Amino acid sequence: MQILTVQELQDWARQTPAALLLDVREPWEVALARIDVPGLAGVHMPMGDIPSDLQRLDPEQPIAVYCHHGVRSLQVVAFLARHGFDVVYNLAGGIDAWSREIDPSVPRY
């Protein structure tokens, strides 16, 4: 299991061309707060939609997955890895860690 801390995410984005930041939270959570990282394309796909929407993701594209605290994203990373995604990372602490440690303007909930 590959893990990125919130401190590592920005450097990873600069070093990883064409990477994707995958938000697996529910729509109501996305309405409250989101992460924008220069250099990363952002996609929202709730965790429950991943199995049916898997074809929307490119197994060759590096992906960093996040949720609220990192639990759902950890499960999604494991699922993606089992389905042939080799370069996939869990964002440790999720958007809550991002808000606490990187950008306090991102609302906590």
Rank of each mutant, 00 (worst) to 15 (best):
M1E: 09
L4P: 15
L4G: 10
T5F: 07
V6I: 07
Q7P: 12
E8V: 00
L9P: 12
Q10C: 10
W12G: 01
W12N: 10
A13T: 04
A13K: 11
Q15W: 02
T16L: 03
T16K: 10
T16G: 08
A18Q: 15
A19H: 04
L20Y: 07
L21S: 12
D23F: 00
V24Q: 13
E26S: 03
W28F: 12
W28Y: 14
E29N: 08
I35C: 10
I35Q: 09
V37E: 10
G39Q: 08
A41R: 15
G42S: 11
G42M: 07
H44V: 00
H44M: 02
M45E: 14
G48W: 04
G48T: 11
G48P: 14
D49P: 14
D49A: 06
I50D: 07
I50T: 08
P51H: 04
P51F: 00
D53G: 10
L54H: 08
Q55Y: 01
D58K: 01
D58Y: 00
D58T: 03
I63M: 14
A64K: 05
H68A: 12
G70H: 03
G70C: 12
G70Q: 05
V71N: 15
V71R: 13
R72A: 05
S73E: 11
S73H: 08
Q75S: 11
Q75G: 05
V77R: 03
A78M: 09
A78S: 15
A78V: 07
A81H: 12
R82L: 04
D86W: 00
V87Y: 04
V88T: 11
V88E: 13
V88M: 07
V88C: 06
Y89S: 09
Y89T: 04
Y89D: 10
Y89R: 09
N90P: 12
N90L: 08
I95M: 05
A97G: 10
W98A: 02
W98Q: 05
R100F: 09
E101N: 07
I102M: 13
I102D: 01
S105K: 07
V106R: 13
